[in-house]
Simulated scan of single mutants.
Amino acid sequence: MSETMEGGPTARTLRLLDLLQSRPVWSGTELAERLGVTTRSVRRDIDRLRELGYPVRATHGSGGGYQLGAGRRLPPLLLDDDEAVAVAVCLRLAAGGTIEGLGEAAVRTLAKLDQVLPARLRSQVEAIHEATVTLDASAPSVDARTLLLLARACRETERVTFRYAGPRGEGERRIEPYRLVATGRRWYLLAWDLDREDWRIFRLDRMTEPATNGWRFRPREAPDAADFVRRAITVGAYDHVARVRIAAPKSVVEQRLPSSVGTVTADGRSHCILEAGGQHLGAMAMHLGALPWEMEVQDPPELREIMREQAARMLRATREG
């Protein structure tokens, strides 16, 4: 009989590991009764776990038994379906280079995880991998079923319907999904809006009742998802848009400012242009004033005047007496 068959040594070893993780100490007799085997078989399975890297300690006397302790190296992990998908999503974010020093390790881990995933989960993980791009490091929590449904629809080019609570009220939307984009604050979906006949972005936390109906679509020529969402959330959604020339290279400014704050473009080797949106010019002036570089406000003129007023007020606040 194959060891991978139910009831074989491999399946029994996994069951033994599950028991050892469920409480601090088990006697050999208790384990044998739970597994339906002899205590000799339990000892062999304990040895097998140790060979795999699990530090199983054995103590004698009253109150003794087998105990699973902390080891020096990470043993194989047992994940259920939801845990495997969750790990894949987290690794995908790290593999995108958003967490310094983890990108290469995350890619290697993803490759190993993909090799051992069953077919029913591999398609789900691949859907999330293919449909997600990342702007910032820490995306907030999102309903896993919604995320998976949209990711699969992006990959399978399948139309999606959902109810959406936007700034102008709630209503049903019919879209052709293209890409999921994770930012430091929330998740977005870039999609073709069938009713408005244009590209739109949708916040996942504003969606309810997402569903696919089996209708496939032919992919359109789409804009760059990350750039489209970045501009929409930093410029397009605000009453005011500031354009500032900063006396620092683009790479230096991008290290200080998250992608969700604004769009940075190079202006020669030593300067760059920052475009950022805001609802209040006063708040924008304070945020810009806190940046550590020399700058020139190109637009709007009202922002320059407010910054002058704030600078004068700050100078007056520094007077002694």
Rank of each mutant, 00 (worst) to 15 (best):
M1N: 11
T4G: 01
M5H: 14
G7C: 06
T10G: 03
R12Q: 13
R12C: 03
Q21N: 11
S22Y: 02
P24W: 05
V25D: 02
T29F: 03
T29Y: 07
T29P: 00
E30L: 06
R34N: 10
V37C: 14
T38P: 06
R40L: 06
V42Y: 05
R43D: 14
R44V: 08
L52C: 01
G53T: 07
R57T: 11
R57L: 12
A58Y: 13
G63W: 05
G65L: 03
G65I: 03
Y66E: 09
Y66F: 14
Q67S: 14
G69N: 06
G71M: 05
L74D: 12
P75F: 08
L79E: 07
D81C: 06
V85I: 15
A88Y: 10
V89D: 15
C90G: 09
G97F: 02
G101W: 05
L102W: 13
L102Q: 15
A105G: 12
A105Q: 14
L113Q: 13
L117P: 09
A119G: 03
A119D: 13
R122E: 08
Q124S: 15
V125A: 14
V125I: 09
E126T: 13
A131H: 07
T132C: 11
V133C: 10
T134K: 00
A137S: 13
A144N: 04
R145F: 01
L148K: 02
A151R: 10
A151K: 10
A153D: 05
V160I: 08
F162H: 10
Y164N: 08
Y164C: 07
Y164M: 03
G166D: 07
R168D: 13
I175T: 11
Y178Q: 14
A182R: 12
R185H: 11
R185W: 01
R186M: 01
L194S: 11
D195N: 10
D198P: 00
R200W: 07
R206Q: 12
A211N: 08
T212S: 12
G214L: 09
E221K: 13
A222R: 14
A225W: 01
A226W: 00
V229T: 09
V241C: 12
V244L: 05
P249N: 07
S251A: 15
V252F: 00
V264L: 09
A266I: 07
A266W: 01
H271F: 09
C272I: 05
I273T: 10
L274I: 04
L274S: 02
E275R: 15
A276R: 04
G282Y: 04
H287Y: 00
P292N: 05
E294D: 15
V297E: 08
D299A: 15
D299L: 03
P300N: 04
L303V: 04
R304E: 10
I306P: 01
E309H: 12
R313Y: 05
G321I: 00
